[in-house]
Structures are given as C-alpha cells and as structure tokens.
C-alpha cells in the first residue's frame, strides 16, 4: 500500500429487513487507499466486519464500471457521492480526506422499500417499464437497415435519453422522490424514433399513470435529478413528457 492511506469514520445505515426500523451505526476504518473505489472501501469494511464476527453490510453492486446502475448509495447526503457524472463504483476514495466522516445511506423513497442495510427494492422501475417502456415488433424477416430514415438530431437526442441506466439517483436526490427524469428518459428514447413514435401517445399515458400509482412524488423543476444523474440526462426530457402527456390525454379515445 502506498503512503497517504486514510483513516475514515463511517456512519452506515443498518437495517435487518423490511420490518426493522433501522439505525445509523458508526464504524472506523484504517488504511484506506485513495486509489480504491468507494465499493472497494465498502468491501474492505465488510472484510473487517466478517473477521470480527459481525454481520457484513448488504449493498447492491454488479458491473463496477458505471453501466449497470446497481450501486445505489447516498454518500454524505448526495446520490453516488460528491462527484458529478459518476456512479458509486466510479467514485474514488481520493475524493475524501484523512479523518473524514462519511455518511452512507440507502435511497429513500416510498416506492423503494429498504430490503436490508443499503439495499433497496427498485422493482417499481421495472413495473413502469412493463407499463409501456417498449416497442411492439411483429416477427418476420429482419427489416432493411436504413429503410426508415431518422434525422441525426433525433437519433442523438434518443441516444442521450437511452443513456439512462435506471440507477434511480434522480429519485434519491429529488426532494420530492419524483421519478420523472427516469420515466421521461424512457419515454423520450422511444418517442424520438419512428419505431417508438407509433405507440407514443399510449405509452406516455400508461407510464405516467403507473409512476403515479407507485407513489413517486411530483416534480418541482429544481433539476437536482439532472445534477446527480451519472449519465447527465437532461430535464428537457421531462418537458417533452409533460407536453406529450397533455396532448395524449386530450386525444385519448
């Protein structure tokens, strides 16, 4: 280990199961390398806990390269920590100083119940996708690659929206626990393309009503979601959803 290793104080949310009230628990961790990722630091803490015969801290993680959207952690009051355009796995310990106190909590939202410690159930997002976040494609021969012309501008906007990894940092950072950035990105990525446009009106209605039904809050245009999104998804998607919803609701059969 290199010099400049840090000693950290950690305050981590511990909760046995969905029924447990849960509480913040203090830990101290010595010899944390600034080159570690935040998740590696959590692994180090867990090894220490296991060696001491304690229950390790449960947290979600998968790809550890910023594309799976699993590593949901509220770090020092910010979704995925203090750096912009990063997930927790991409956050390095060099963002912290020796002696710092680091507070780690799970996402907080009625629609995301805490399963254990830092793990939350984000299947509410799956339900929203199942409500309309797809295109119906008839089976048959593969269509010609360039049979449907798509403007470069729309292709770019759709791709920007499609960068969403469903990590729910938008919900976590929103003071109203609103899912509108996620839902609008998923609506936009399809609505901007001719293949998705066909079902666009029905899609916006069903996805928004599912989002409302699941108990997410309402957007107040603070743009904290955009600021904490690891993929930099713009709130212009929310405006697109707003106007599409209104026209769709008026025209609905």
């Amino acid at each position: 280990m290199s010099d400049g290793n840090m000693n950290l104080k950690l305050k981590v949310w511990r909760q046995k199961n969905t029924k447990d009230a849960g509480q913040m628990v203090d830990y101290s961790l010595e010899g944390v390398s600034p080159d570690m990722s935040f998740l590696e630091m959590m692994d180090m803490l867990n090894e220490k806990l296991v060696n001491e015969g304690q229950d390790s801290i449960a947290f979600d993680h998968d790809c550890r390269e910023g594309i799976c959207g699993m590593c949901s952690m509220m770090i020092n009051g910010q979704a995925h920590g203090p750096k912009d355009l990063t997930t927790t796995c991409q956050l390095h310990m060099r963002s912290f100083k020796d002696g710092d106190t680091v507070v780690v909590e799970p996402w907080r939202a009625r629609a995301f119940p805490v399963m254990k410690d830092l793990m939350v159930d984000r299947s509410a997002f799956d339900q929203i996708i199942a409500a309309g976040g797809f295109v119906n494609v008839n089976t048959g021969n593969a269509p010609d690659g360039n049979a449907i012309p798509i403007s470069k501008e729309n292709a770019d906007l759709a791709m920007d929206a499609a960068a969403c990894i469903g990590c729910a940092a938008c919900v976590a950072s929103c003071k109203n626990a609103s899912a509108m950035l996620f839902v609008s990105a998923k609506i936009s990525q399809l609505a901007l393309l001719p293949q998705g446009e066909v079902e666009g009106e029905e899609r916006v209605r069903s996805m928004v009503s599912k989002m409302d039904e699941l108990g997410f809050g309402n957007c107040t245009n603070e743009a904290e979601c955009e600021a904490s999104c690891p993929k930099g998804i713009s709130i212009s998607n929310i405006a697109r959803m707003n106007r599409q919803y209104f026209t769709s609701a008026i025209k609905a059969k």
Partner: peptide, 26 residues
C-alpha cells in the same frame, strides 16, 4: 402533501448538489 408522503423515511444527511436547486426553488 403528496411529495411529503413520497419519502416517509427522511435522510439522515441530505446535501444539495449545488448544480440544481436554488434558494428560490427550495
């Protein structure tokens, strides 16, 4: 009221990113 209900358990620590909310918006 709805927004309050959407987060029944509050954060122990919540910090604005500094790139979104403003004094006016909050």
């Amino acid at each position: 009221m709805e927004n309050h209900k959407a987060r029944p358990v509050k954060y122990y620590l919540k910090q604005p990113t500094g790139r979104g909310s403003t004094f006016a918006s909050s």
